[in-house]
């Protein structure tokens, strides 16, 4: 028998109608697939095809309120992952997608009689750039957040949690650094740079970083939907609960991808300063690809980010199923095949 936290568990076995936005991304797709596997009736909403078998695929943008309204009809639960996730870009774009998109979705979901709304957020919504060692989920703080992505996620989270009431339950789940096979955000970027020998370690690579294997992030988000009575109104950080020095983590990813690990180090302070400059120039020059270093990335890679997971695990009645090392093994398998 599977444990109560197993991926096939759902309360009272009753199927639920769920809208998942942003299901073409790594995490969104994993969430939608898990819901389908559990027997729920899933609608996916994003600009590109989601590729989730068994789900009703609706194409559209969160900037289009009519499309959203149509997609959410009949849903009991919403999992909102759609966002502009990037290290650079124009501030207005971030705001339009991340803040206004969330505002629109909240509005149409409430109108449509949705009961539960899980907003997938980011720990960076509460991060001022200082090291985080074993803290829980601090309140989102747009004014302190670094970078447009974090700022707009913070603002959107506040917006979403403010909507929480007994008839329309809202919770925020903040998975920290999601990765896994098929990940373009972290894994691909690390491997591309390492291949071109452009991946430095910041400082000594000692900063302790907690990450989330994609399957764990997905099961936590789905668990959130089932545990709304315990968590609504709250924000929860989700991780593997296995902090590792960033150097080892990068080495592990490189080993899985079959490329040599970084061997040269740059002082964190220099990287942060350089990141700020590069970020500005890149945006100003209108370049579409990701810049080699951003302030956000430099902070992420040179200061500790690991979290107290006790409350999260208790409230979600959930534990991660895939350990960090198992995740790396699966990643290696992915690149071998």
């Amino acid at each position: 028998m599977l444990g109560r936290t197993g991926p096939c568990w759902r309360p009272s076995g009753k199927a639920m109608k769920v809208l998942v936005t942003g299901a073409s991304g790594l995490l969104g797709r994993a969430v939608a697939r898990l819901l389908v596997r559990q027997g729920h009736e899933v609608t996916t909403f994003q600009r590109r095809p989601s590729g989730v078998d068994g789900a009703t695929d609706v194409r559209g943008s969160v900037t289009d309120e009519d499309a959203l309204r149509a997609a959410v009809q009949g849903a009991e639960g919403v999992i909102h992952l759609a966002a502009k996730v990037s290290f650079t870009g124009r501030a207005a774009e971030f705001y339009e997608v991340n803040v206004e998109g969330t505002r629109r979705l909240l509005r149409v979901a409430r109108d449509a009689g949705v009961r539960d709304f899980v907003f997938v957020s980011s720990p960076s919504a509460a991060n001022s750039g200082a090291a985080i060692a074993g803290l829980g989920a601090e309140p989102a703080a747009p004014q302190r957040a670094h970078g447009d992505y974090s700022r707009t996620k913070a603002e959107a989270e506040l917006l979403a949690l403010a909507e929480d009431d007994p008839g329309f339950r809202v919770a925020a789940v903040r998975p920290h650094i999601v990765w896994g096979p098929g990940d373009t955000q972290l894994v691909e970027r690390v491997l591309q740079r390492a291949k071109r020998r452009r991946l430095p370690l910041l400082d000594t690579g000692a900063a302790l970083i907690d990450t989330t294997y994609v399957d764990n992030a997905a099961s936590a988000i789905v668990a959130a939907l089932h545990r709304m009575e315990h968590i609504h109104g709250k924000a929860l950080v989700v991780t593997n609960g296995e902090p590792r020095p960033i150097g080892e983590l990068l080495a592990g990813i490189c080993a899985a991808g079959g490329v040599p690990a970084p061997s040269w180090a740059v002082p964190g302070g220099v990287a942060r300063a350089a990141g700020t400059v590069v970020e500005k120039l890149w945006t100003w020059a209108g370049r579409k690809e990701e810049p080699p270093m951003t302030r956000f990335l430099a902070e992420q890679l040179s200061t500790a980010h690991w979290f107290d997971q006790r409350e999260t695990r208790k409230l979600l009645d959930w534990t991660p199923e895939v350990s960090l090392d198992e995740g790396l093994a699966r990643l290696a398998e992915h690149y071998r095949s």
Partner: peptide, 10 residues
């Protein structure tokens, strides 16, 4: 260890 692993000076 706490200092080093926070990303501080070694």
């Amino acid at each position: 260890a706490e200092r080093v692993l926070a990303g501080g000076r070694r």
